[in-house]
Design a protein around this nucleic acid. Structure first.
Lengths: 187, 187
DNA sequence: GCCTAAGTAAACCGATCTGTTTCCTTTATC
DNA sequence: GATAAAGGAAACAGATCGGTTTACTTAGGC
């Protein structure tokens, strides 16, 4: 099937609304109306709003990481170049129309209990990003790839939040400049 | 008056609840019950929930910056030492019981319209932090204080978000390690 | 002692929330 | 063409939302 399933379409709509307006502020009625789907259909695919939130986080998780890694690999050829290309890919993301910060940071701001499943998905997302960066660090023959990966991941977070609050993409270039210095020190 | 005014007490309670549970999820009834104040009194001091949110952000803004700068100045004697002490102060913040990330980042995740007053307060907070860091950079005789300040501020953001999502304070040490390298390169 | 200001508890308002149900229509399959 | 699954529109449920109002109590100043 080329057309996405009805279930995936609902999730797609929910992702956009959750990103822009947050999770508590986005009602099931709004999702349903925007997706042009009846409430019965929505609750036929998802037991509850929370389950839809989890499905949205999971779909976005895989999709974002996949797209982001593709972008990074297209922008840089070598592992070192890709470590820096992370921030070029981030910059185009910040400049895109639908940038409202990191969905996984935003969800943590609304659900503080660390035992909640949304929190687990959020932690996992950040760990997967960290793992990807770590692989690039190892292939770059960094002196201490674990430490460099911690540092690069923190830069990434800092750039996202800076872009979200300031409303500009300048943080990407700042983070890239830091990354260059770290890379020079670690090789 | 040694005892805080009733108005300030309501704001104090609201700050804690907004930080822990977010803004949309925190109802006026909960604030009122927690503050042990009648709804009439609450609406006698604040025209609306939004106005209470703004008052909470503003009070927290001034108080946090004041306390944080005091901590930094107690932990470091020279401007260079204070630039690094930022991350020591951050670490104790991350380890405190009531750490739920940065209130100003969290509010931006729930209110995406950049023309909203909460967004203006958020941007202003980050600008004031940036200005404080810039002053330290200038007094440190950094080659290019503006660039160094941008970098240090981004590290600070990255450390906060990393701590919030991971649930550990490790990001503080990572950010401090980066800061040391930046400082060495900029002097 | 009186009056005013500010407080309380609780009822109340209309709107919105998540979620269920009803009734009817579409659609696809055998 | 009958049947069964799925969807649509809308009413409905009970709870909660932000916010107002009412009736009563408290406290302080003159």
């Amino acid at each position: 099937m080329a057309r996405p399933s009805r279930r995936d379409h609902i999730i797609d709509v929910a992702i956009v609304l959750f990103c822009e307006h947050g999770f508590h502020a986005t009602g099931v009625d709004k999702i349903m109306r925007t997706a042009q789907v009846s409430k019965k259909t929505l609750y036929n695919h998802f037991r509850s709003k929370d389950e839809l939130i989890l499905a949205a986080l999971q779909l976005y998780d895989g999709r974002f990481r996949n797209n982001f890694m593709k972008d990074v690999e297209a922008l840089g050829a070598t592992p070192q170049a890709r470590l820096l290309a992370i921030f070029d890919a981030a910059e185009t993301w910040f400049n895109s129309q639908n940038f409202f910060g990191c969905m996984f940071v935003n969800v943590v701001g609304e659900y503080s209990d660390p035992t909640l499943p949304m929190r687990a998905i959020s932690r996992n997302f950040k760990q997967m990003i960290h793992r990807y960066i770590l692989e690039l660090c190892e292939k770059s023959d960094a002196k201490n790839p674990e430490i460099l990966a911690d540092e690069m991941a923190l830069l990434f977070e800092g750039a996202i939040v800076t872009a979200q609050i300031s409303g500009t993409a300048a943080g990407a270039k700042t983070a890239k400049a830091i990354a260059k210095q770290l890379l020079a020190n670690h090789l």
